[in-house]
Write a protein that binds this DNA or RNA. Sequence first.
DNA 1: TTGACGCATACCAATATGGGAATATGATGG
DNA 2: CCATCATATTCCCATATTGGTATGCGTCAA
Lengths: 116, 116
Amino acid sequence: MGAMARAATTSDAFNAIAEPQRRDILALLRAGERPVTELARELGMSQPGASKHLRVLREVGLVRVRGVGKQRLYGLDARGLRPVHEWVGGFERFWSGSFDRLDAYVQDLKQERQGE
Amino acid sequence: MGAMARAATTSDAFNAIAEPQRRDILALLRAGERPVTELARELGMSQPGASKHLRVLREVGLVRVRGVGKQRLYGLDARGLRPVHEWVGGFERFWSGSFDRLDAYVQDLKQERQGE
DNA sequence: TTGACGCATACCAATATGGGAATATGATGG
DNA sequence: CCATCATATTCCCATATTGGTATGCGTCAA
């Protein structure tokens, strides 16, 4: 019951994709299933390293595994990214087009003043 | 140099938004600027807690500050979320519509086999 | 059964948290 | 200059990584 640390990487997709190498793995898997060793080689990481990242991705459901002989083929299951996309999308109007930085700034100010 | 730990939360937007409370702060700031204490109160966190999260958000450029008298008004600067949205958007075809889980799975297999 | 191969785990080191409490810092109003 | 309000920082703690390296384990081929 003492202090807390950062949330586990396995807690949700947001945490899982915070790690660059895991994002690389997901991106690579868009091209199709891959066995661990191949992933490791293509991404320049150690085999244990790849396995560990894959474990995290598996625990949040972003990849699934399929045993084929000695190999374990990892495949993408991007459904878990949808909530992330939607959450971030909720900010789209704040970065797109006519709403440049200064505009947004001023807008916010106006809104703020009106509220009081 | 020795082992590494998790990337800093201040390293990029992906890491910054991995923390739920920081996401809450960003979401709240869409309604307009807020002073620290108000943010803390509305989100049920301590003042130091809010300040610390705001510091992280500031360091990755997702919020900006403006001093107004004794207060410091924090405002949203969502531009940094755009790359995140785009990266995640790159997976859209894998979760949307006709591409349900099993379909995607089979598709991947086919693509894989063709590639060899 | 025995190797060999592919992968997952265990263990260790070094580090980055996130929360609470206490305290320092800053700006404002008298 | 001082008391005060609003924030930022500092400490301390327990925890959760990420990256090696070594090793366990399951499957397949002889």
